[in-house]
């Protein structure tokens, strides 16, 4: 019984893992936003990593799309920046800053 159960469980596990990265392909791309004078480029790669680039700095992070359709940017320090995906645009909410609207670049 257990022997028959094991592959079923492993299959379920694999499916649940797949579910996590369901929309990654569609979301991946380069986005840009402006905060005052600062121009920010958000590059979401298909492998789940991404970069946050400004004039001063470039920050590495990982990103994922949650089941509810939200975009999570996972910082190296352990923080999560939440965003919403709306068609080709992404809205990111940073603490103490108005929401940033990123538009997809060609």
């Amino acid at each position: 019984m257990t022997n028959r159960l094991l592959p079923v469980l492993l299959l379920l596990l694999a499916l649940s893992l797949c579910a996590c990265s369901r929309d990654k392909d569609t979301v991946a791309g380069t986005y840009a936003a402006k905060n005052g004078d600062t121009e920010i480029t958000l590059n979401l790669k298909e492998n789940g990593t991404g970069t946050w680039s400004t004039d001063l700095d470039e920050i590495q992070f990982k990103w994922s799309v949650r089941k509810d359709g939200r975009l999570w940017l996972h910082t190296r320090e352990g923080g999560v920046i939440q965003g919403r995906i709306m068609d080709d645009n992404i809205t990111l909410a940073l603490p103490g800053v108005p929401d940033l609207l990123f538009t997809q670049q060609q």
């Binding site: 649940s16 893992l17 910082t75 320090e77 352990g78 923080g79 999560v80």
Partner: peptide, 20 residues
């Protein structure tokens, strides 16, 4: 068992977040 496996997988992926 499934609950723990499921819960642990995210935490393993994002250890820094779990530390936070």
């Amino acid at each position: 068992g499934g609950l723990f496996v499921f819960a642990a997988m995210y935490k393993i992926n994002y250890a820094a977040e779990f530390a936070t």
